[in-house]
């Protein structure tokens, strides 16, 4: 089963290229250029597993976006991606529930590894919750590139 990833970055060229590369690597990828669009996509697609989020964006910034994502979709894992990764921002993001952070420009292998890792954690978390509630996992939705 493919991992569903939402890429959020204001650099359109970057996000588009990265989306294609991840798609080539069998990920199901959604794209957004700002936090508001990302929230919409997340609301429409509850199967998204991992959000790769730029820290510094016009409008709602990455750190505020994490809060919103974690509040509405607590199971979704967030990986911070930044060209301005001060330790404070990263630590702040981790404290808000981010899975990890990566510095731009990121190697594709590194990103793939981190996304898979995040997905693994999400799966474990979901498994725990299911076993606690005694319910079965929902069917995955339509995938989109």
């Amino acid at each position: 089963m493919a991992i569903n990833v939402l890429l959020v970055d204001d650099e359109t060229s970057f996000v588009e290229t990265l989306a294609r590369r991840l798609t080539l690597r069998q990920f199901a990828v959604w794209q957004a250029n700002d936090a508001e669009t990302a929230m919409r996509i997340l609301a429409d697609n509850p199967t998204i597993d991992v959000v790769v989020l730029d820290v510094k964006m016009p409008g709602t910034d990455g750190l505020t976006a994490i809060k919103n994502i974690k509040r509405r979709h607590p199971m979704v894992e967030v990986i911070l991606l930044s060209g301005h990764a001060t330790l404070e921002a990263s630590v702040g993001g981790m404290a808000l529930g981010a899975f990890d952070y990566l510095l731009k420009p990121v190697r594709i292998d590194e990103l793939v590894y981190k996304v898979e890792d995040a997905h693994r954690r999400k799966a474990i978390q979901e498994e725990k919750i299911r076993s606690l509630r005694g319910v079965t996992p929902p069917e995955s939705n339509e995938q989109k590139t």
Binding site: F14, T17, L18, R21, K56, H84, P105, I108
Partner: peptide, 24 residues
Amino acid sequence: AGVAHEINNPLAAIGELAGLMEDL
């Protein structure tokens, strides 16, 4: 930090574009 940030964004795009080319 400012310079690095300004360079990193286009650099990320270049890297990804080159990566995509390699992938393809």
